[in-house]
Each structure stands twice: as C-alpha cells, then as structure tokens.
Design a protein around this nucleic acid. Structure first.
Length: 436
DNA sequence: TCTGGGGTCCTAGGACCC
DNA sequence: TCTGGGGTCCTAGGACCC
C-alpha cells in the first residue's frame, strides 16, 4: 500500500509555526515577485480568494478583510520541508518525494504497520509530523499513487485532527471513486475535465468504468490509459525513493533538467541588466547541479516578452547550446550563456523574464577534459574552486562569493518581495526569539 | 504600475540533409 | 495526370502537475 502525505496550505502553515497568533486567521502567501496568491489558509479560501489570483487585483479585498499577506520565503519552506521528510523517513525507508509539500510512502512490507493496522499507522504519521515539526498534514492510503492522491483529497474533508483515509477494500475504493468529481482526479486538468463531462463522465467512478479503448481514444492515448488503470488499482506509476536515499552531492537519478527563471521587477531593455540576470540564474542553476552531483551537456537561455500583451508572435525566445563536454562549472556555463544571450537579444525589445535551463544531465566527474581545453590538473583545480565557493556560500549565505558577471546586487531587474518573514531557521541573525 | 516558478511529456512545422 | 521519402535538429507551444 502507498500513503500520500500532503501538507495542505504548506507555506501558510510554515508561517504559522513561527507566528502562532495567526492560527485561525486568514493568511495568504504570494509567489515570487509578489505576483500571485499561491498558498491560502482555510479561512482565506472561505473568503473566496483563489489559487493563482493576481495579487494586484486581490489587494483591495485582502486589506478589506484584514488578511495577513506574506512574500514567499523559500529558505524557510525548504528547511521545514526537510524536517517533515526526516520524520516521514522514520516510518518507512522508502519515501518518494513528489514536491516540497508532498511525499509518497511505500508501506508494503512494514511489519509494524501490519500489526497496528493501516489506519492507526497513518494516524501516527500525521500526529508525529504535527508534534515534531508543527505542520498539519492529511494522509491518504491506497494501492496506487493515483488512488492515494484521491484518498488524500477526501481525507481533507475530515476535521483537522482526523485527516486520514485508507482505501483497503473494493467497497472503499468504489465509494471513494463515486464521491470524486472527474475534475478532481490527479491528471485531469482544465482541458480534459469539460471534455469528459460533456461525454457523460462526471465522477472518477464513471471513468474507471469506461472501456480501455474509449479512454485511449479520448484521454491522450497511453497517458490516459495509465491513469485509468491506476484508478482501477493497477500500479502504473513507478515508486521512486531515490531522491531521499541519495546523500547530498551524490548523483540524483530521475532528474532531467534544472531551470532557473524569474520575472523582472521592471521590464528590462539593456544588455547589461539582462546579462547580469542571466549570469545570476546560470550560477544558481549550476549550484543546484553540483548539489545533486550532476553535470550538464545542454544549456538553454530564455528571454520572455510580455505574455499578457495583446497580439501574436512568440512570447518566449530560446537559444540552445550543446556543450562539447558536460560541466557544472559556473564560470564556464556563464561564459556560454552570455554568448548565447548576445545572439538572442533584439535591441529595443522590453523583456519581462529571463531564465536558464541545464539539461542533458549526467553524473559529475565523468568528463576527462574541460570544454575550454584545461588540463586534468586545471580541471581538478576548478572543481576545488567550485567546492570552496559552495562551502563559503553555504556557511555565510547565498551570493557571499560570486562571479563578477552576476552584478553588484539590488538591481531593478530583481523582483519584489516586500512582505517576507524572517529566516527563522537558516540565519543566525534571524533566529526565532522566545521571551518568557 | 502591478499577473510565479519548476518540472515532465508530447506534438508540430520548418529547415536541412542524404 | 504526375512534382521521393525519411531522418534530425530547432523552435514553439500545449497539457498536466505542484
């Protein structure tokens, strides 16, 4: 059996751990650049605030209702996520991390679990995360990932302290399928939902009862058939516990790309500003690569114009380079990225967004030659340089030591985050103070 | 004035090549 | 009337997820 543990309203919950007076009050957290609402407390949902709503449109109503608003604080959320995962890994060695606030747990073969009963075990997971980290969760348990997602969704209807649902029998599975609207099934999005409803498929049960050939024809071929089988209890989605098992710096299998993109605080026209941004994103992506013990063969530079402006024409412009050898060296990658950027930029165009994707990933350390023709000795020196740079930045904070091309900091292209909470858990200067 | 970011997988047309 | 075909690379975009 597979359990899905989901921290609902995770970012809001993280803020509440350090500001408990916000318990029971409406709270929202904004996306990067203070753009959209991406996490909402139950109270904020009840007031009608929608996922993804633009902040500048919601602001008057947020003020009117006295909603507490936070810019996103990813250093805090990432650290809290690691704490949750540490607790989960005490319940099973096989944890498949799906996102910052969700993980699948393989409970098959857990003797304690069999002894205590699935329901009690799932409840214990929920209670322990709450006690040790202070983050509320819901737990759904079922034979497949898709059914575990479905169980998790239904579990959230329970009162906060009982958000656990196990689908062990055929009766329980069918009852759950019948109670789930087709639009709420994992893998059915805004395009397929209306199409299926038009064909008379209103619930997950209706879909599970359809024929395989019908599903293949109307639901994106093999992807739809996989979903249909999972709903019927047949495992089609791999359980991949590699992410948590890997030591930091060891190669992480399963990952195909690393991206860093940002919208600008203001549209940018100058090559100087764009190149600072691209150099900064490249160095952040390269850091992530090294953290995962990977090197990249392919680099893509992206520039985006105003995607909300009327009119046609491409909104994103990309340029791809295939590197002669895979690398995770920030300096080498910045050099290549800026060269491509120069080809991509059209003078006078206002860009709203830029980014870098590193793909064609392979475990680091396989390359014997540098793309710039460095000797083996020079290559080793550069790798040591990167290791020291990462160590310094880990100790003294991101960007303490960086390449000159990333600029002096505090530039107009950087986004807004005007309402960020403190780095309670990752900065000595901002530790949470408890006064007696 | 102000509309996120990071992933995966798939499709389609044009350029180019043999 | 008839105007190869198959492969790759490149760019762009659609669909889904969190």
């Amino acid at each position: 059996m597979i359990a899905l543990v989901d921290c609902n309203n995770f970012y809001v919950s993280c803020e509440r751990v350090f500001q408990p007076q916000l318990e029971g009050r409406p709270v929202v957290v904004l996306s990067n650049n203070d753009g959209c609402l991406i996490s909402r407390s139950d109270e904020a949902k009840a007031l009608g605030f929608a996922m993804g709503e633009p902040y500048h449109l919601a602001r008057p109503r947020l003020q009117q209702h006295g909603v507490h608003v936070f810019s996103s604080n990813y250093a805090l959320y990432g650290d809290m996520s690691r704490r949750v995962l540490r607790v989960l890994s005490e319940f099973t060695p096989e944890v498949d991390v799906y996102s910052i606030d969700e993980a699948f747990l393989n409970l098959s073969g857990m003797q304690y679990c069999a002894d205590a009963g699935l329901d009690a075990y799932a409840q214990a997971i929920r209670n322990t995360v709450q006690e040790h980290v202070g983050i509320p969760t819901a737990v759904g348990v079922a034979p497949t990932k898709t059914l575990a997602k479905l169980a998790n969704r239904l579990a959230r209807r329970q009162p906060p302290t009982q958000r656990v649902l196990v689908l062990a029998t055929e009766e329980q599975r069918w009852a759950a399928l019948s109670q789930t609207a087709i639009a709420d099934v994992w893998g059915i999005g805004r395009r397929y939902a209306p199409k299926l409803m038009g064909a008379g498929v209103q619930t997950a049960a209706d879909l599970a009862e359809a024929s395989e050939s019908w599903v293949r024809r109307h639901l994106g071929g093999v992807v739809g058939v996989r979903l249909w089988r999972e709903l019927r209890g047949q495992i089609c989605l791999d359980f991949d516990p590699a992410e948590l098992a890997a030591e930091p710096g060891q190669p992480t299998p399963g990952r195909h790309s690393v991206t860093c993109t940002r919208s600008f605080g203001q549209p940018q026209r100058s090559f100087a500003a764009l190149s600072e941004a691209v150099a900064t994103f490249t160095s952040q992506a390269a850091e992530k690569l090294r953290r995962h013990g990977l090197a990249a063969h392919v680099l893509t530079v992206l520039l985006g114009t105003d995607k909300y402006a009327p009119g046609s024409g491409p909104r994103t412009h990309t340029a791809v380079v295939t590197l002669p050898t895979a690398t995770s060296d920030t300096g080498e990658l910045i050099g290549v990225a800026l060269q491509k950027l120069r080809q991509l930029v059209r003078p006078g165009t206002a860009y709203h967004r830029a980014g870098v994707t590193l793909s064609g990933l392979e475990p680091a350390g396989q390359a014997q030659l540098s793309m710039f023709g460095h000797s083996a000795e020079q290559l080793q020196q550069r790798q040591q340089l990167m290791a020291r740079l990462d160590a310094l930045n880990a100790r003294f904070g991101r960007g303490t030591v960086r390449h000159a091309a990333t600029g002096a900091g505090d530039k107009l292209w950087r986004g807004r985050r005007n309402m960020m909470s403190a780095l309670y858990t990752t900065d000595w200067q901002q530790l949470w103070a408890v006064r007696s």
